[in-house]
Write a protein that binds this DNA or RNA. Structure first.
Length: 467
RNA sequence: UCCGGAGUAGCUCAGUGGUAGAGCAACCGGCUGUUAACCGGUUGGCCGUAGGUUCGAACCCUACCUCCGGAGCCA
């Protein structure tokens, strides 16, 4: 992130190029930053420079003025620190010049790092020089309350705020931990196409786009392609965006969302679940370890996350139906779970719960039926606790040529388009399984927040394509 | 698509038939330890749009638009 990292240089001895003054609106104002050699650092690293003079480059978060003393809260993307400026120490000229800075003005600030119990974070900067790179006027997001719609209209600015930083950092950690776990367990990342000739699962509505003289669809899943790459490499995963043109309007839905989809040859439904619980536990524990500060800022109940360790409970669809009925929910065997159904079931457990053996009728055509009860499939959904709902859908795939051809016919799917997929059952078919984990839902759960739309920088919701 | 809620200052909202309001933001001034600072002042309005009822409509009625929450579908 930092181009001028000072990590491996002794403090105070790394000459950095003089900051350019091109964006300054000050006319012929003297450079108030002196030319002595001062370390450029980040707020994250500032503790290493206690008692020394440093230079920070960032944006003005808030400013409070009190006549002869001024507090400039600076953020630089790595953290926030309060700069203190007094008329006596800083001098009349500097004090006057910083009196009319708007929120989010970009600044290069120089000063001495001081430990101070009064400062949030333990350190503050005794400001001795300020270069105004750009003085911002009328920043729309004030420190007061705003509605979601207003904030979403200003999403490009909203992501500068502390809460959004915390969420997006947790997201990055979740994605990184997923990749780490899979890479360390013999999976090869092979990404699948986003432009596809036809529906993958044939269930949801797809976004259609021009493809020269014909049309193409934005992928709703890499699932089918993953099966091909798994037959080529054994253990694989795809990690990328997926698109669903469903008119879903809930706190769990986005039109564009990210999914990681591992697929494994010679793995059955039960082993599939073991892999999932290992990976999910690892991801949650890594977030606790590396993003604790962010989770605390979000006021997440960390004790709930600490419980996320294997094994996760596994219940049969029949049991789940019984739980619903015991809790007074009218539910007929054979249906899929709605949001509230998922909540009722998952609230019975303090860990994510697998619900397996769903009725075949509500699942995709490629799911393998249970030989003993063919009206159910060898698949499992993973429901996150605390009512966060389905974060994983997965299962064992149909590996029998004749049965797959029959299913494709039953679902009235175009045979030509699936010819390559059927081929996989013709040349060395093996039992195989996989799953798809929704990144935004997982991040929502880990963060303990209300809505998936804050877990991606620029969410695509039903009626929002801006910014 | 269906059900429910809401559109009033830049933002968050009050105002339920009789002169358009508050807090914050912005702007001016005061204050040497502020944490969503505080104090004084100034600016700021096609009350979502179009009809209708009424002497008179932000307010009542009708339609439409937009947003929010939920359902369905899904990760």
């Amino acid at each position: 992130m930092e181009h001028n990292s000072t990590l491996d240089l002794p403090p105070g001895r790394n000459p950095t190029p003089r900051a350019q003054n091109g964006g300054s609106t000050e006319e012929e104002a003297p450079m108030s930053i002196d030319t002595t050699i001062v370390s450029v650092t980040t707020i994250e690293q500032i503790g290493q420079y206690a008692g020394q003079k440093v230079r920070l480059r960032g944006w003005l978060d808030t400013m409070r003025s009190s006549g002869k003393i001024r507090f400039l809260k600076l953020r630089d993307g790595t953290g926030r620190i309060q700069g203190v400026l007094t008329k006596n120490d800083a001098g009349e000229e500097l004090f006057e010049r910083t009196g009319h800075l708007g929120q989010e003005s970009s600044l290069i600030v120089e000063g001495e790092v001081r430990e101070d119990a009064r400062a949030p974070g333990g350190y503050e900067l005794l400001v001795s020089g300020v270069e105004i790179v750009h003085n911002a006027e009328g920043y729309p997001i004030t420190p007061k309350d705003h509605g979601t719609d207003f904030l979403m209209d200003h999403r490009h600015l909203w992501i500068r705020s502390q809460r959004q930083h915390a969420i997006l950092r947790v997201r990055a950690q979740v994605m990184r931990s997923i990749s780490d776990w899979l890479d360390n367990h013999g999976f090869l990342r092979i990404d699948t196409p986003i432009l596809t000739p036809s529906a993958c699962e044939g269930t949801t509505t797809l976004f259609e786009t021009k493809y020269f003289e014909s049309s193409a669809f934005l992928s709703q899943s890499g699932q089918l392609y993953n099966e091909a790459t798994a037959m080529a490499f054994g253990k694989v995963y795809a990690f990328g965006p997926t698109f669903r043109a469903e008119k879903s309007k809930t706190r769990r839905h986005l039109m564009e969302f990210w999914m990681v989809e591992p697929e494994m040859a010679f793995v059955d439904m039960w082993e599939n679940m073991e892999i999932q619980e290992q990976m999910v536990s690892y991801v949650v524990q890594q977030c606790l370890q590396h993003r604790r500060r962010e989770l605390e800022l979000l006021e997440r109940d960390l004790s709930k996350l600490e419980k996320i360790v294997p094994p996760f409970p596994r219940i049969h669809y029949d049991e789940a139906v019984q739980i619903l009925r015991d809790k007074g929910v009218e539910f007929e065997w054979g249906g899929d779970f709605g949001g509230t159904d998922e909540t009722v079931v998952s609230e019975q457990f303090d860990r994510p719960v697998f619900v397996h053996h769903f009725p075949a009728a509500v699942k995709a055509f490629y799911m393998k039926p249970d030989p003993d009860r063919p009206e159910t499939v060898l698949g499992a959904d993973l429901l996150a606790p605390e009512g966060y709902g389905e974060v994983i859908g997965g299962g064992q795939r149909l590996d029998d040529l004749a049965l797959l051809e029959q299913r494709i016919a039953e679902h009235q799917l175009p045979t030509e388009a699936y010819a390559w997929y059927v081929d996989l059952r013709r040349y060395g078919s093996v039992p195989h399984s996989g799953f798809g984990l929704g990144v935004e839902r997982t991040v929502t759960w880990v963060c303990g927040i209300e809505h998936v739309r804050e877990t991606i920088a620029f969410p695509r919701t039903l009626y929002r394509l801006y910014p």
